[in-house]
Nucleic acid binder design. Structure first.
Lengths: 325, 325
DNA sequence: TTGTATGCGTTATCAA
DNA sequence: TTGATAACGCATACAA
């Protein structure tokens, strides 16, 4: 089997405790002994057993990321950010999809003594899990979030300057109002003196992929053709909508200006290239993990964690142009 | 802290061993005692500590998925398949990106007593890891793989019937020849009596995203314009190439027919919709995980695991059309 | 500065 | 059918 501390101790001619001391840098050890231990460990290719360690310290250095939709490239970027920090700090991360059985997921989390949880792109589970689990959690909240506000204001400003007045929104959520980007959009419309037409707000079916965007655009076209610009919840939906408009003979940007959100790589390569809100998903992932680690080690009377926002910028590409007529 | 077996035992008025027996169904227990234990466990909301269990059984029920490129949606589908069977079988999966430090990755794997490893979409690490780690591994090999052969033959057949004779290939790998799909393409060209023009085989730079496809198309155009059809290593590269051709004033499918590979969702929504090889990535993920579990429990003299292939189909969409002239 | 001994929550061996 | 109890590999209080 794997080599244990005992064998290292034997080879170095010290006790097992001493090996711990030097491996963990937890007590003063004479340099000469330290050297012997290190050499023995190296020679035997010793790797501390984190399972055993976790059992006694109650810290498994293992965290979970819960997610609905691992297929969205935007997630992938967040996850990479999470992993980047995790790796540096000696944590390992497991991805759990909440799709299957939330109950089983909770069991898993409890049984494994996970040190913490990151909720990424799970819009509905937060409360459920927070109630049941007594574990540090990290997710986008008022203290750490991507700030879309400026970008959305920039979009509306740009669209207005190009002559657009009737701007549609493809939401993705069945509960249209339940999302912060929607509020920013409403605020921006008001700020620039544009009317928010109710029939141009298209609720979704809970999905947010290309097909959802296609369908949302379809519903929009069924309702009215009196719009010249469209914002989509995310880039995938925008790509789906783009397809639907094309099929309808509507050209982008000649007939319709279109803007997505997230800034996935594909946006730069669509026909025409898709305007979007460039999110720094990698940074968000890093921040989520950093914050989780901070929470894990947070003492009762520590000061609260500082607020952090991740910036997002409007990236204008060819999918946005002058309003027709 | 969390409730342990001891407390369940106390409440049920039995020994800790008995609790184990009923929780794990590992020994005969009188129904009445069994009932008491179950009730106590339920009442205390007891969850077995898998960390402790892992320490004694040497089975952590924890596996790792190593990957280069977590951003590829195709990879997300594989991962979902992996997770699906993992969840059913009580395993948890951690995703490690090999990008950072392979050495650290190995340490991680060893320290955590992982039961096994899945290599997905890492093209270069297999040998390194196989040599160092003495752990069951699962990856696409001659016993389990996606079979592109028929699909590639179908593509070439279709292209030939449409009058294409000069077919380019955007490889993505710097070592062009090192990939099975390339061989299938060569075989298919030979089978249908088409000439494989060397200048139409474009090696890559090791990347395989949209930008890589864009660049590969760029290099192809620099070399020659004497081609009417293009196969790309994957869909993302095809999307990038599509963009490059568009910029050049070349229209798809009028001037060039284009085919990707993987069948990511976006392909159905590009302009024009992209022909591709539809892979069943979810099934592949399931198969990889099933096979890993089989390997974990495989005894010395067990029969070898059966060979399994995952089918892949050519999906023809508007990006393929008649050869010009 | 170093070693001894105990416990972490579980499984498994052996008695009862 | 059940119950003590010794591991598992490690951290740590305490002793030397």
């Amino acid at each position: 089997m794997a080599v244990t501390r005992k064998e290292v101790a034997a080879m170095a001619g010290v006790s097992v405790a001493t090996v711990s001391y030097v491996i963990n840098n937890t007590k003063k050890v004479t340099p000469e002994v330290r050297e012997r231990v290190l050499k023995a460990a190296e020679h035997l290719n010793y790797h501390p057993n984190l399972v055993a360690k976790g059992l006694v310290t109650k810290e498994t250095k293992h965290v979970a990321v819960l997610t609905d939709n691992i297929q969205n490239p935007h997630y992938g970027r967040i996850l990479r950010g999470v992993q980047h920090v995790a790796e540096q700090e000696g944590y390992i991360v497991s991805v759990l999809s909440t799709n299957y059985s939330p109950k089983q997921t909770i069991t898993e989390l409890l049984s494994r003594n996970m040190d913490g949880i990151i909720l990424a792109l799970c819009f509905y589970v937060n409360h459920d899990f927070a109630a049941v689990l007594n574990v540090p959690m990290s997710y986008e909240d008022e203290n750490l979030y991507t700030d879309y506000r400026q970008a959305i204001f920039d979009i509306v400003k740009t669209l207005k300057e190009l002559g657009h007045t009737r701007i549609a929104y493809l939401s993705g959520f069945s509960n249209t109002v339940g999302h912060v980007r929607y509020f920013h959009l409403m605020d921006a419309l008001a700020y620039y003196g544009l009317t928010p037409y109710e029939e141009l707000i298209i609720p979704g079916d809970g999905y947010s992929d290309e097909a959802a965007g296609y369908n949302a655009a379809d519903r929009l076209l069924e309702t009215t053709r009196d719009f010249t610009a469209v914002l989509a919840l995310n880039d995938m939906m925008a790509i789906g909508a783009m397809r639907r408009f094309w099929e309808e003979g509507l050209r982008i940007p000649d007939d319709i200006s279109l803007v997505g959100c997230d800034g996935i790589k594909t946006t730069a390569f669509t026909t025409p290239p898709l305007s979007t809100i460039q999110c720094h998903a990698f940074h968000l992932g890093e921040a989520l993990m950093s914050r989780l680690i901070a929470k894990i080690h947070q003492e009762e009377d520590d000061p609260p964690l500082p607020v952090k926002t991740i910036e997002a910028e409007f990236v204008q590409r060819e999918s946005v142009g002058k309003a027709p007529r």
